[in-house]
């Protein structure tokens, strides 16, 4: 009976993942490996960026083109924020579908999302990356790593650590069913600062982590160390988010850019 419960939990989490996220690894890999009819539009310099803005991401580049006269770095930063807000919204819906999450104390739900969404976002972002770049605009565009690196500082420091993480993370060759459980384990984490009902959340986390371990053994029988390797990735993601939050604070202080109110809430008093 316990095994049946664990399989049900794994299935529920995977279904919630497929339902709530617009992009997933299977879709991204199909595009990145050239198996689609129309390849993504490649953004590799200022000219191709402008072309992409006129077509692919017109909706994202500010209402009535409010940002059209701003420098490229600011426009790209704005697009990153829009994508982050969308993913946070998707992650919230996903979290609500994880069995037990919605019955938690509302303050604890807020805390789990505040601390978990960026770790989950960067784990999932790896699916849309290869060593040369990143899928954008729902997979209709591909922005090169070199172009992102060529932006002026501090904006050029934004994505490179995510690429470095993604290349190692993608080496683990997880599929969407593994990722769904990994993302659920990130969100339902018992050691976030300020949690009220720690024991309850630790219990939820234990169930999910146990299911993840069993699922990895069945889905990757040739890699018996995959589970401990993934646990290490949890620590790496925490570090990645800490550094990202510091960079965003620096950008907010030194650059004339706005930060979406939802992202402000998440970053405020984070670490």
């Amino acid at each position: 009976p316990q095994l049946a419960d664990q399989k049900t939990l794994a299935r529920q989490i995977y279904e919630a993942y497929l339902k709530n996220f617009n992009m997933n690894k299977a879709k991204a890999r199909t595009i990145l490996t050239g198996k689609t009819c129309t390849p993504p539009f490649v953004i590799h310099d200022m000219e191709t960026l402008q072309l992409a803005e006129q077509t692919l991401v017109a909706k994202m580049v500010g209402s009535a083109g409010a940002l059209k006269d701003r420098e490229a770095e600011v426009r790209i930063f704005h697009c990153c924020q829009c994508t982050s807000v969308e993913t946070v919204t998707e992650l919230t819906e996903f979290a609500k579908s994880v069995p037990g999450f919605s019955s938690l104390d509302l303050n604890d739900q807020v805390t789990l999302l505040k601390y978990g969404v960026y770790e989950a976002l960067f784990a999932m972002l790896a699916s849309s990356m290869n060593k040369d770049g990143l899928l954008v605009a729902y997979g209709s565009g591909f922005i090169t790593r070199e172009f992102l690196k060529s932006l002026r500082r501090p904006f050029s420091d934004m994505m490179e650590p995510k690429f470095q993480f993604a290349m190692k993370f993608n080496g683990l060759e997880l599929d969407d069913s593994d990722l769904s459980l990994f993302v659920a384990a990130i969100i339902c984490c018992g050691d976030r600062p300020g949690l009220v009902n720690v024991a309850h959340i630790e219990g939820m986390q234990e169930s999910i982590v146990q299911v993840l371990q069993l699922h990895l053994l069945a889905n990757h029988p040739d890699d018996s160390f995959l589970f401990p390797k993934l646990l290490q990735k949890l620590a790496d993601l925490r570090q990645l988010v800490t550094e990202h939050a510091q960079l965003v604070q620096e950008i907010k202080k030194t650059e004339d850019t706005s930060l979406h109110p939802l992202l402000q809430e998440i970053y405020r008093d984070m670490y």
């Binding site: 500010g62 209402s63 704005h78 924020q81 829009c82 807000v85 946070v88 919204t89 919230t92 819906e93 609500k96 509302l106 303050n107 739900q109 807020v110 805390t111 999302l113 505040k114 300020g194 706005s258 930060l259 979406h260 109110p261 939802l262 809430e265 998440i266 405020r268 008093d269």
Partner: peptide, 21 residues
Amino acid sequence: LQEKHKILHKLLQNGNTPDEV
């Protein structure tokens, strides 16, 4: 905590899409 995270709180309760940046 909910006071300081009004948008997250709103998302949790009704799933409204946040306003544009």
